[in-house]
Simulated scan of single mutants.
Amino acid sequence: MDMPRHRFTHEFKLNALHLAFHEKRPAYRAADKLDIPRKILCG
């Protein structure tokens, strides 16, 4: 059974990058704050 793919807006992706790189957060914490599965951002 295939899992549905996530579709993220460009703005959402930029926010995720900002959290992970500019605020010096570990990727898993940024994923938790954005309420997305950790493996999506950490992968």
Rank of each mutant, 00 (worst) to 15 (best):
M1W: 11
M1S: 13
D2V: 07
M3S: 14
M3E: 15
M3K: 12
M3F: 15
P4Y: 15
P4C: 13
P4W: 15
P4L: 09
R5G: 05
R5Y: 07
R5C: 03
R5E: 09
H6Y: 11
R7V: 14
R7A: 06
F8K: 05
F8W: 11
T9C: 15
T9Q: 12
T9W: 11
T9P: 12
H10R: 12
H10N: 10
H10D: 13
E11Q: 05
E11W: 02
F12A: 08
F12C: 06
K13E: 15
K13D: 15
K13M: 13
K13Y: 10
L14N: 13
N15S: 09
N15K: 09
N15M: 09
N15E: 06
A16C: 10
L17H: 10
L17T: 03
H18S: 09
F21Q: 02
F21P: 00
H22P: 08
E23I: 05
E23N: 02
K24T: 05
R25S: 02
R25P: 00
P26W: 03
P26C: 08
P26V: 04
A27V: 02
A27G: 06
A27F: 04
Y28A: 11
Y28G: 02
Y28L: 14
R29A: 05
R29N: 03
R29T: 00
R29Y: 03
A30Q: 07
A30T: 06
A31V: 02
A31D: 05
A31I: 00
A31K: 04
D32R: 01
D32F: 00
D32K: 00
D32E: 04
K33D: 09
K33P: 00
K33F: 07
K33Q: 11
K33R: 11
D35N: 07
D35T: 03
D35H: 05
I36F: 14
I36K: 12
I36D: 13
P37K: 07
P37H: 12
P37G: 06
P37A: 08
R38C: 02
R38H: 00
R38Q: 01
R38A: 02
K39D: 03
K39F: 06
I40C: 04
I40D: 04
I40A: 08
I40Q: 12
L41M: 14
L41T: 00
L41F: 10
L41N: 04
L41H: 03
C42P: 03
C42S: 08
G43P: 03
G43K: 03
G43L: 00
G43H: 00
